[in-house]
């Protein structure tokens, strides 16, 4: 009990700082949610309620915004977030086989987006703005261009090795 309370207090302290930085007006909502998303890789429900109170908004408003934008996730995401670009340029150069290859390589089944060990999340995005290099993927903001299903194996091997797997 005492330990969780301590952790929560730290988070609340941090959150108070973030809110103070952006000002407690409704227009601060999206930047604050972005910071929470960045820190936790998702939006924990209890923090949403806290933010609503702090910004003088209804929890429904906060929930509405949190579910509108693709950047926000209400479920925890993996340590490595792999985004496969499925913009037009990447699509015509074969992004879907890449997507399938990654899912297969990290053993994602049944439409799940995150591996059970919490290591990888795999999602598609529309255009990363590097279309000249199609097909493109990013792993935690690192961009990889002209990827092939074979290159995927190498990239994931490196990450797994780093995680001691």
């Amino acid at each position: 009990m005492s330990r969780t309370a301590e952790v929560d207090l730290n988070v609340v302290d941090w959150l108070n700082n973030v809110i103070a930085e952006h000002g407690s007006t409704p227009s601060a909502l999206i930047p604050v949610l972005q910071e929470v998303q960045k820190k936790h890789n998702y939006l924990p429900e209890e923090l949403l309620t806290y933010i609503a109170t702090a910004l003088n908004l209804s929890p429904a408003t906060v929930y509405g915004v949190a579910t509108f934008y693709a950047q926000f996730s209400l479920d925890p995401k993996g340590k490595y977030i792999i985004k496969v670009c499925d913009g037009t340029a990447c699509h015509v150069r074969g992004s879907l086989p890449i997507y399938e290859a990654i899912r297969k390589r990290v053993k994602l089944v049944d439409g799940k987006a995150t591996t059970d060990d919490g290591l990888f999340s795999v999602e598609t995005v529309s255009c990363l703005g590097a279309c000249g290099l199609a097909p493109v993927i990013t792993i935690n903001d690192q961009v990889y261009g002209q990827v092939t299903p074979e290159a995927i194996d190498l990239i994931i091997d490196v990450l797994e090795k780093r995680e001691g797997m």
Binding site: A89, S126, C127, G129, A130, C131, G132
Partner: peptide
């Protein structure tokens, strides 16, 4: 915002 999936001039 450059939303068109396949354009990157604004970027």
């Amino acid at each position: 915002d450059e939303g068109d999936p396949g354009a990157f001039m604004d970027r």
